[in-house]
Design a protein around this nucleic acid. Structure first.
Lengths: 132, 132
DNA sequence: CACCTGTTATATTATAACTATAACAGACAT
DNA sequence: ATGTCTGTTATAGTTATAATATAACAGGTG
């Protein structure tokens, strides 16, 4: 599996798991309908408890990224994600506010910031399918 | 004082404090050299413990936003912030990555995203000095 | 029937966030 | 000098979250 976890990081394991899977979907390394490892399998693979993986999966389900079938297992949502609605855009704005405020304090211009975002966007461009 | 805290939010109080002060600096409602409330005063004002405020102040000091004089109190850094260095830009990039990945999954285009950032930047434009 | 799914329940440990008190040390005003 | 204002340090306790450890359950599949 392509998922790598830093057990020493100050960001929770289940959160890292979520981010890695979301990143995989964003760069189309994980495609709609694609099967994800079982909670036990993935937990054993990265050396954590099954509940930690379960927590990540459930939050991903609640946010619309994946489907969980009780016996068939876990798959990337076959219909693709729901498009951003107003509630999501509001949450997005709230998460960007403190980041942008801090950048302004350090004289990062709006243009620099947008340029950085554009370059990150390109990172997720799935021209070539591999490498993180 | 202009600082408002949501005690029910899932974001720590000391973190909210930091963000409010950083936002104040960004929009130049707080100017270099300006005095901030004492740890006890601010704690009493918003109804939290003095250690919570102290934690926020110390992290702000470590990140270069403020100066703490043992008897004179706390002031916004008189020399202004250090400009963004490579380490900061790297941290900034890392904080934007998961946000952008999630947005891509919801079909938010790079242009939309940059437009949103630009509109947030304008929020901090200090043409008029007041209102949050 | 054995085996694989996710699910649920219970208990435990570790850490972070927050509070509560108390006391200390230096500066400053009356 | 005394009281009062700073931030600082120490200690203790509470609450919530993150993570682990086991165990058992329920429904498909080989």
């Amino acid at each position: 599996m392509f998922i790598k976890i830093d057990l020493e990081a100050d960001i929770p394991i289940y959160e890292q798991l979520k981010q890695e899977i979301i990143a995989g979907i964003a760069k189309q390394a994980l495609l709609p309908g694609e099967k994800l490892p079982s909670v036990r399998g993935l937990a054993a693979d990265i050396g954590v408890n099954l509940h930690t993986v379960n927590k990540a999966y459930h939050q991903l389900r609640d946010e619309g990224y994946i489907l969980i079938h009780r016996q068939r297992g876990v798959v990337i949502h076959p219909d693709g994600m729901a498009q951003a609605d107003e509630a999501y855009m509001e949450k997005l704005k709230e998460s960007l506010h403190p980041i942008i405020a801090a950048s302004i304090c350090r004289d990062v211009s709006s243009e620099e910031f947008q340029q950085l975002c554009a370059s990150i966007y390109e990172t997720y461009n799935p021209r070539k399918d591999d490498e993180q």
